[in-house]
């Protein structure tokens, strides 16, 4: 999948590596010397009990949080982004919070994020994909939790980022919503992107599974 590198040129995403990563929360070790690699076109499903450090790992990969030790890198055929700032610009983020502003409509929200991320994605298309066309001009305060999640998925799709980090993407979604997640994740995979999802339930997509915790 194409990625813009530092100099603004297009490069091809290759892989993401995590090398001997250690996370400490307060005085507690969440995980130690964690190493793995995800290739372009792969989906990694992160599993494990609550408190195992799944969200922490995602935040560290995104560069929102600094690890106690270890390195994380996102490599293309042209460069390797290993500092948090550069990594962050390759990340598509779907947190467990929906990020919807009650005063803004879905259309306004998507238009804002498209400009914020400086992408040229089609807003109407993203709205249609997420099944939000009918309520596109209704302030988000009237949306249900599931609809806000769909909005977040549309935003993710629109971000144009190569490495998707999803924190419980299936929560508060109905069967149809789950199908939507599976659809856009598979599409991203086939397009050569990377998806890492922390989840309690199967994603319904071909994926590599990794379990965190239990041994801390």
């Amino acid at each position: 999948m194409p990625v813009f590198n530092r100099s603004g040129r297009v490069a091809q995403l290759q892989f993401l590596t995590v090398d001997r990563l250690t996370a400490i929360r307060g005085q507690r070790v969440l995980f130690r010397d964690l190493s793995f690699r995800v290739q372009a076109g792969q989906v990694l499903s992160l599993e494990g009990p609550n408190g195992a450090g799944k969200t922490t790992l995602l935040r560290m990969i995104a560069g929102l949080m600094a690890p106690a030790a270890g390195t994380i890198a996102i490599a293309t055929d042209a460069d390797v982004a290993d500092d948090s700032e550069e990594r962050g610009k390759r990340i598509g983020w779907l947190g467990h919070l929906d990020g919807a502003k009650s005063q803004l409509t879905p259309r306004e929200a998507l238009a804002f994020y498209a400009r914020l991320y400086d992408t040229h994605g089609a807003i109407d298309e993203a709205l249609a994909l997420a099944g939000l066309t009918k309520i596109a001009d209704l302030p988000c305060q009237y949306l249900s939790a599931g609809q806000k999640k769909r909005l977040a998925l549309a935003r993710l799709k629109l971000s144009g980022r190569a490495v998707w980090l999803l924190d419980e993407p299936l929560s508060s979604l109905d069967a149809e919503g789950r199908k939507l997640v599976a659809e856009i994740v598979s599409a991203h995979r086939l397009y050569g992107g990377i998806v890492i999802a922390a989840t309690h339930e199967p994603l319904g997509v071909e994926c590599v599974r990794m379990t965190l915790g239990g041994g801390a």
Binding site: A62, G95, L97, L116, Y117
Partner: peptide, 15 residues
């Protein structure tokens, strides 16, 4: 911060 937007903003091209 409370609705998660700040994470999305932090990952934008803006420092």
């Amino acid at each position: 911060f409370e609705d998660g937007s700040l994470d999305l903003i932090a990952l934008s091209p803006l420092s």
